[in-house]
């Protein structure tokens, strides 16, 4: 396989894993299975509450799902991921993250720090040296803007959402 094809295959595989490929989910309310990720797209099927689907992607507020023999789009918030779909700590980036922070094979995971339990919150020990370290991580406003430009993030104006009406 040509090198660029291999890279593309890797990138595609990564993109799929990023989009929660193959995860089981259940509908939390009756909801429409749409042909495209738009509210006014054609409805392929009407799903009942507690319908089981397989998530194969996400785009904005929509999940691409397989259900029965059909593939279509369902509102993300109409779904609840199945508990058995993901074990604790078993996320897509866990193994990558190990490499980054330990530079090793991930053996650090089992001896990881269990830090912030309630006991330590009731009897705290300040760590001023760590506070200095954290201070050193801070970035300037200009750095942040540059970071946004590099990611082609464009600021948007939007008002805060109103609180739900009091009952």
């Amino acid at each position: 396989m040509k090198p660029w094809k291999f890279m593309f295959a890797v990138a595609l595989a990564l993109a799929c894993s990023l989009a929660q490929a193959g995860e089981t989910a259940y509908t939390v309310r009756p909801t429409a299975l749409k042909a495209k990720p738009y509210t006014d797209a054609q409805t392929i099927d009407d799903l009942a509450q507690n319908a089981r689907v397989e998530i194969v992607g996400r785009r904005g507020s929509w999940n691409r799902v397989k259900v029965n023999d059909k593939t279509g789009w369902v509102k993300m918030l109409a779904l609840r991921l199945g508990e058995t779909a993901q074990k604790s700590g078993d996320s897509g980036f866990k193994s990558l993250f190990n490499m980054a922070s330990t530079g090793g094979s991930g053996s650090n995971m089992t001896t990881g720090v269990r830090g912030l339990d309630e006991e330590k919150l009731h009897h705290p020990q300040p760590n001023p040296q760590a506070l200095e370290t954290v201070h050193g991580f801070a970035v300037s406003k200009e750095e942040a803007r540059q970071f946004a430009r590099t990611g082609t993030l464009a600021a948007v104006r939007m008002d805060y959402l109103p609180a739900p009406a009091a009952k």
Binding site: V113, L121, Q125, P128, F137
Partner: peptide, 11 residues
């Protein structure tokens, strides 16, 4: 913040 860092240091 110093107290929180006393419980869990920065990565």
């Amino acid at each position: 913040a110093s107290n929180l860092l006393g419980a869990a240091p920065p990565l």
